[in-house]
Each structure stands twice: as C-alpha cells, then as structure tokens.
Simulated assay, not measured.
Amino acid sequence: MNNVSLDLLQLEGLKVSPGASVPAFVLLLLIYVFIMVSNLGLVLLICTEPSLHQPMYLLFCNMSINDAFGATVVIPRLLSGVFLPGSDRYISYVDCAVQAFCAHLHASATHTVLMIMAFDRYVAICNPLRYAAIMTNKMLVNLSVSAWTVSLLLVAVLVGLSVRLSRCRRIIFNPFCDNASLFKLSCESVLINNIYGLGYTVVLLGSSLGSVTLTYLRIAMVCLSSRNKGLNHRALQTCASHLALYIIMFVSGSIIIILHRFPSLSDHRKLASIMFHVVPPAMNAVIYGLQIKTVREKISILFTKKNHRPQG
C-alpha cells in the first residue's frame, strides 16, 4: 500500500445507532449553537461595554475565544458524519493533522489562559494597591500573547513529531483526529513521540496545577489574615468562578489521560474526549457571564420584557 492511498483516512467519528442519529445530531447542534452564542456574545458585550474594559473581563475574552475555537474544531466535523455509515467517513491526512493541531492548541491554551487569569486574581487580591500599576494594557497584551505563544510552540513540536512519520495505516479509531491518532498510523518507532508527549503533559499540567494551587493558597492566607469582610467576600466572588472552571477543565482532561491506560475502556475515553470539547466551553460562558453584573442585568431585562409582554 503506497502513501498516495494513505492520504485519505477513514475516521471513526461519533458512534451512534441509526435510531439515535437524529437525537444525537439535534442535541450536538443545539450545544454547539449555545457555545458559540454564549461565548461570542460575552466577547461582544465586553468589547462594547466601556465599564467592562477591565483586566479581569478582558482576560475572559481569551477563554471565550478559545472555547469557541475548540468547539468549532471538533463539533462540525462530528455533525457532518452523524448520518454517514462508519465506512463512508473520510478525512484527508492534511485535514486530520490540522484538526489534531487545533484540538491540542485548544487544550493547551485552556491551561495557559487559566494560569494568567489566576495571576490576575492574585495581584487583585494580594496586592490591590498596585493592581492598576501592574495590570496595565501592555501587561495584558504580554500575558495573552505569552499564553497563546507557549501553547502554539508546545503543540507545534508535539504534532510535528507525528507528521514526520511514514504511514502504513489509514483508519482513525477516534471520534476526531488528535496527536495519538496521527502517530498510531505509523509502523515506525514512536518512542520519541511518547517521551515528548509525556513531557508535554507533565510540564503543562504540572505548571498549570502548581501555579493555580499556589495562587489560591496565597489568596486563602491573605483572606484568613484579613479582618476585612469586604475583601473576603470579593475574593470569594471573583475566585469561585475561576476555581470552578479550572476544576471542570482539569477533571475532564484527567479522565481522558487516565482512560488511555485502560484499552478495554476505549469507548468511554472517546466519549470523554468529546465531552472535553463540549462541557467546559458550554459551562465557561455561563459561569463567567453570571459573575458579571452587566450580564445579569441584561438577562433580567430580557426576561422582564418577556413576562410583561402585552397579551394579544
């Protein structure tokens, strides 16, 4: 079998029974629409509302853009193959590599963006008098660019090591393309891929978990040593949403890593990998959006208008 025939890969896609195809399609489509409307709507609101032009809210935009990006990488491809039999779901090798790159970029950026958001909360609560001097527009740009650049470089090497390999297989046993799907197409030694992949995971998860843990321990110490109830309330309000988001993301990502160690649970791992690109993006905008007073006010006005709509 030559490489020309291997340029068109067979993608497993979303495994659903014919009877469940329509409900699965409708549910996934509704979730995707909700993710896009909520996240892009939040970005639009923050950009157009002068009162929200503050570092914390502008950093929210990084997360919302990343969530919309991550959902778009995976969900449309899943939707396009729901009604096709597994043998007719094809993807070109180039498209597969691009999807794998984007999927890992989304996952990596989730960690790095949450790290800079934790730093913002640390400065705001532990050093409030210098917050404005530290979190300047230049600092915001530098933090955002750094978060995306680090993710971009780490993932470029990760996927690049897989793309360099020759291929002897053409079936992707996964709902969508990821790095593991790419190097499993090869019959060559993937020792380097496994070593770098392990290092990549340890560095990313270790730095993410370590920085967030240390940040919140420091914030907790400041709150415990302070008798200012206003400070403690503000710290709890602003940090609870960030911590909830991090836990959702970390748990969903860890489940995928753990299930990789149990081949008999491959179907559960595949479902978990889809959930990682669906659940956090759907929850993030809700968690952050309801924290913003302006968003709550606009939602309240919307429902008030509906409830007081004159009857015909």
Rank of each mutant, 00 (worst) to 15 (best):
H104T: 09
V123W: 03
C126I: 03
L14F: 13
D88G: 01
L105M: 14
C102W: 08
S208W: 12
D267L: 13
I274K: 03
F183M: 04
Q237A: 05
E49V: 02
S21G: 11
C61N: 15
L204K: 13
P281Y: 04
L40F: 11
C223P: 00
C187A: 07
K229I: 05
C168R: 05
Q291W: 07
G199Y: 03
M36W: 00
T215M: 05
K305C: 10
N307T: 03
L153C: 15
M249W: 09
S207Y: 03
V163Y: 10
H268R: 14
V163N: 06
I116V: 14
V4Y: 10
I258N: 10
L58H: 06
G197L: 04
A97T: 13
I287R: 11
P281I: 01
I125T: 07
N284F: 13
P55I: 00
S87H: 06
L29G: 09
T294Y: 07
D67L: 00
R170D: 15
V141Q: 04
D7A: 12
S80A: 13
S211P: 01
I31C: 12
P128M: 08
D178S: 15
K184V: 00
T201K: 13
K184F: 09
S80I: 00
M56R: 14
A180I: 11
P18A: 11
T304I: 01
C102A: 15
L205M: 07
Y288N: 11
L245V: 10
Y122I: 03
M275P: 04
R296L: 04
L161V: 05
S226I: 05
F25H: 11
I134C: 10
L154I: 11
